[in-house]
Write a protein that binds this DNA or RNA. Structure first.
Lengths: 162, 162
DNA sequence: TGTAAGTATCTTCCTAGTAAACTAACACTG
DNA sequence: CAGTGTTAGTTTACTAGGAAGATACTTACA
């Protein structure tokens, strides 16, 4: 019967540890959902809404050589299915920010490339985004906090890519 | 012209700091997108997929008194619009996990309540989720890392709720 | 009491995304 | 060089969710 108590105590200790873990992760989920939209508030010079995927596409293209990347690569980087990215590219192209360029070496691939307008937009969006990051993240956690967060995140990311 | 050099140096130092900030936050975004799906893998006993919203609804209801909450409260907690949540509730109800209960004190409100089947599902889902959290988060960051992450997240979340 | 303002849910219409089938181009193998 | 498998991109059919309006109820106040 001591055994039963022992087992009970062990189970509840385990459960408590689980609950702490769930809580801590839950905090991250909440923080992420709360902060993310703040970091895109008003980043579009035109005052329109800027969706997360648009933002990511613009930034990634701008820091890529030639301001362009194959569709499939970009799709993977922004976590979209290939079909989904086709339509996102259509919308960006309709707005004049993105153009498709064909690849002579491999005629299957299509580059998604920033137009000059797209590149300019990307630049403005990036500086406004950095401003918001300073206000909503750097000012809150401090430089050390941000570095710590980054390093924890890197470990998680690397481990998640088995 | 010393001024110009000075200005140049200042600008580039600022830009570099911004880039580090953007990088660190980008790491968090990547980590989050990489880890989140791993934490839902196979949590449904039936082997079906379990979407994030379903998961959150089940857990939150289970830890609520009476296993129920007003629709609008639950909607806010899982970051859905009221209209969107109405339909999510419909789907959960169609599967038999959730039932609507009316509130006599205020006949506008409708409780979303777990059925016995829903409560059982929630229990299994939670233990499997905790297992995955241990493997993909606790084992990677260690107890201290998790606590640190939780505390940073809490600060971000609290600040984001102006 | 009667009325205005506010709140909770649902409904309708629309958009962004996925999965799967399809086409075209490349790459390997015999 | 024909045959087979693989990869990049698009198309199609479908689903989840948002925004705005409609409805029913509640609260505050004159």
């Amino acid at each position: 019967m001591g055994d039963a108590l022992e087992a009970d105590r062990a189970r509840s200790a385990q459960e408590q540890a689980d609950d702490e873990l769930i809580t801590d992760w839950g905090l991250l989920v909440e923080a992420f959902k709360a902060v993310s939209p703040l970091l895109l508030e008003g980043v579009h010079p035109g005052g329109e809404e800027m969706s997360g995927p648009w933002f990511e596409v613009l930034l990634r293209l701008q820091r890529s050589p030639g301001h362009r990347l194959p569709m499939s690569v970009l799709a993977r980087e922004v976590s979209l299915s290939s079909g989904g990215f086709t339509k996102l590219a259509d919308r960006l192209a309709a707005k004049g920010y993105l153009a498709r360029e064909s690849c002579p070496e491999d005629r299957r691939v299509v580059y998604a490339a920033l137009t000059p307008a797209g590149s300019e937009l990307a630049g403005e969006v990036k500086t406004r985004h950095a401003e918001l990051l300073r206000r909503h993240v750097l000012d809150v956690l401090g430089p050390d906090g941000v570095r710590t967060l980054g390093s924890l995140a890197r470990r998680l990311r690397d481990s998640a890519r088995d």
